[in-house]
């Protein structure tokens, strides 16, 4: 197995075949996941408790302080955490914990002989799942909006940027977690590292609390890490307040992290496959 064959696959089969593959994976995921409507709903309701907790806690604090904390009111917190639920769903990608099984059960061996880099199969599949998720999310978002009354008045530019940004977030998180998961090729004792990664992400992405409410030094740390591009930025793009310059800046930052992720994944993948062959050899 040479890695050259994987990289060249894209050029050999042409862009059309490539798009057809994505369309097929997309459709498969939609059909497959619509079968599990009930399961998906259970999962979403369990997931939605998380932002509702944050929302309730921070609204309570805003009310206790006379209606406002760090520029957020109960209404803007509601907007933040309801948009959060969609962004979080966009953020669900192949888990790094799944790599151990992939490697142990030899699922990768069959993927290696396919002409395309295996990440395309994950990207296409999870992107299709997102369609199911968004359709199922709409009624939940409506209910949440009726209960918590969000203040949300995005401009057209904000809506456009948001639409791009959620897919940017999806790509960045897919690539990051792929890199993290691939560490499993070298050692199986990676769960502890994953835990630390997810805790850092929780705190510095805007998932737990808008980054603006963190102490200054934490905001600076968040500024040099990719996490905010996958959570805080897409949410703020829609909820605001944000200027058009900041929108462009945020999208460019996302583009940077996508390039970083692509470079990182291809570098690690090449070395990992060499390692993998040696192990199973």
């Amino acid at each position: 197995m040479t890695t050259g064959a994987i990289d060249d696959g894209l050029h050999e089969s042409g862009l059309r075949a490539f798009l057809r593959l994505y369309a097929t994976l997309f459709r498969l995921a939609i059909i497959e996941q619509f079968q599990y409507r009930a399961a998906n709903y259970f999962y979403m309701i369990g997931m939605i408790t998380e932002p509702v907790i944050y929302l309730v806690v921070w609204s309570t604090i805003a009310d206790a302080r006379g209606g406002e904390v760090g520029g957020f009111t109960a209404g803007t917190f509601a907007a933040y955490y309801i948009v959060w639920t969609l962004v979080r769903n966009m953020n669900i990608v192949f888990t790094p914990f799944g790599w151990e099984q992939r490697i142990r059960e030899g699922q990768l061996s069959s993927q290696l002989v396919r002409p395309l880099h295996p990440i395309h199969y994950d990207l296409g599949f999870f992107a299709g799942w997102k369609v199911v998720v968004i359709v199922m999310w709409l009624p939940l978002a409506t209910v949440l909006s009726l209960i918590f009354k969000p203040e949300l008045n995005p401009t057209v530019a904000q809506m456009g940027a948001f639409f791009v940004a959620i897919w940017g977030a999806y790509l960045i998180r897919s690539l990051l977690l792929w890199m993290l998961g691939m560490v499993t090729f070298w050692t199986t004792r990676v769960s502890a590292a994953f835990e630390v990664f997810f805790a850092a992400e929780l705190l510095l992405s805007g998932r737990l609390v808008p980054v603006r409410l963190m102490p200054d030094w934490a905001q600076q740390v968040a500024g040099v890490l990719p996490f905010e591009s996958t959570f805080g930025f897409p949410i703020t793009a829609l909820v605001g307040p944000i200027s058009n310059e900041e929108l462009v800046e945020g999208l460019l930052t996302q583009a940077f992290w996508i390039l970083f992720g692509v470079a990182g994944v291809s570098f690690m993948w090449r070395r990992a496959v060499r390692n993998y062959t040696a192990v199973s050899g």
Binding site: N40, G46, M47, T49, I53
Partner: peptide, 12 residues
């Protein structure tokens, strides 16, 4: 998925 649901709710 019940497990997921319960774990989610327990966070509250």
């Amino acid at each position: 998925m019940l497990q997921e649901l319960f774990t989610g709710l327990y966070r509250a």
